[in-house]
Amino acid sequence: MQEFKETISFIQNYYNTKEFIPLHEPRFHGNEKKYVMDAVESTFVSSVGAYVDKFEEMMEVISRTNKAIAVVNGTSGLQVALRLAGVSAGDEVITQALTFVATANAIAYNNAQPVFLDVDLDTMGLSPVAVENFLEEYGEIRGEACYNKKTNKKIAACLPMHTFGFPVKIEELLKICKKWKIPFVEDAAESLGSYYKDKPTGSFGELGVFSFNGNKIVTSGGGGAIVTNNLELGKKAKYLTTTAKKPHSYEYVHDELGYNYRMPNLNAALACAQLENLDIFLSKKRKLAENYAKFFENTNIKFKKEVPCTKANYWLMAVELENMEQRDLFLKTTNEAKVMTRPIWQLMYKLPMYRNCFKDEQKNAEFLEDRIVNISSSVPLK
């Protein structure tokens, strides 16, 4: 209990307040008001406007990809990315159960079924060993695709999620997916600014998807981005997210099922201003992570740190408690002191809509579910 009180004191001193400290609040220190008012005055406040174009250009530079497409949120981006990767009704998609529900929902929105495999303890993301073991037991190459020989369903994609901004073991997963002819799509919703071997997350797969929700490092209020190095896929992504409308100056012709998923210019204006400060935000968050790591060094609370060959954005700082009892006590003590903390997500296969999905042993995921807590992670004001 004393360590918990010392943690509360450390956080209060770092943020210089004894008032309520949220988990992750946005910072608006730049051109946000200026750009939003400019968008209002332009009258282009919906899905067409200069800031949408500017946002997409900025994201192409940041993600080092050839094409970025602005969308209304990360979930819609994942849904479209999976469709573009070839996921169809009845297919299976390999992913992790230790994730935010949007990862699994995006699969279900394509009428496909998640296959929940275990995570690694260090990255908290999809384990290459778990994927390899699953495919060795159930996988079968038929022509140019991989099938589950037990269910006879196509394994249409692999969708890892970079948990809290910590990159998964991308090269190992890519090697396995290439061997088994499975498209690789990155759920990079939480990892804007994270790197694996000096290359941005989101740029490794056929497509990557980012989120700009209100609690992310960079926010557009609500928004997302699909990124890809495949210009044809990028073109198709923009087409599908704009209701599959054929270009014409005044006629409305839609030749396939599309989505009204475009990010409004108002949101893009906010995002552009936020992206201008991304490097500053990342630097301050890494400094916060360094201070947390030093503080927790001689305690029984383990601070989760980036693994070798990666550079994490430390979107949400995470600590590992000794057991579930200690986790629950930590959560109660901190929240009662107005320092917001929260447990990691409930595993997806425990939710009613995913209870019948395949899962492996989930030894690591269940270990982490019982112990991981997110702590105050807002960009410090100082």
Rank of each mutant, 00 (worst) to 15 (best):
T7N: 05
T17Q: 11
K18N: 15
E19N: 15
F20Q: 11
L23Y: 08
L23W: 08
G30E: 13
N31Q: 14
E32Q: 14
M37C: 12
E41M: 12
E41I: 11
F44N: 14
V45C: 14
V48A: 10
G49V: 05
D53P: 01
D53G: 03
F55K: 01
E56W: 01
E57M: 07
M59Y: 00
T65S: 01
N66T: 00
N73E: 08
G74S: 04
G77Y: 01
L78A: 02
L78Y: 01
Q79Y: 06
V80Y: 01
A81V: 03
A81H: 00
L84S: 02
L84N: 00
L84D: 03
G86Y: 02
G86R: 02
S88R: 14
V93W: 05
V93K: 01
I94Y: 00
T95N: 04
L98M: 08
F100W: 09
T103R: 01
I107N: 03
Y109D: 13
N110I: 04
F116G: 02
D120Q: 13
D120E: 15
D122F: 07
T123M: 07
G125S: 15
P128E: 09
E132Y: 12
L135C: 06
L135R: 02
E136M: 12
E140K: 15
E144V: 11
P160D: 08
T163Y: 11
T163I: 14
F166R: 00
L174Y: 04
I176M: 04
I176N: 01
A188E: 01
E190G: 03
L192W: 01
K197W: 00
K197H: 02
G202E: 00
E206T: 05
G208H: 03
G208K: 03
F212E: 03
N215W: 10
V218A: 15
S220A: 15
G222T: 12
G234Y: 03
A237Y: 04
L240D: 05
L240E: 07
T241I: 06
T243I: 13
K246I: 12
K246G: 02
H248F: 11
E251F: 15
H254G: 09
D255M: 00
E256F: 10
R262L: 10
A268P: 05
E276W: 10
E276S: 08
D279K: 12
D279W: 10
F281D: 12
S283G: 07
R286N: 13
K287I: 11
K287T: 11
L288C: 12
L288I: 11
N291G: 08
N298A: 12
I301R: 06
I301N: 07
K302G: 05
A312C: 13
Y314R: 03
M317P: 05
M324Q: 15
L329A: 14
L329F: 13
F330C: 09
K332D: 15
T334G: 05
E336W: 05
M340A: 13
T341P: 04
P343E: 11
W345K: 12
Q346E: 15
M348H: 08
Y349G: 07
L351T: 10
M353F: 12
M353D: 14
Y354T: 06
Y354S: 09
Y354A: 08
F358N: 06
E361N: 14
Q362H: 08
F367L: 13
R371S: 10
I372A: 06
V373M: 14
N374D: 13
S378N: 08
K382N: 15
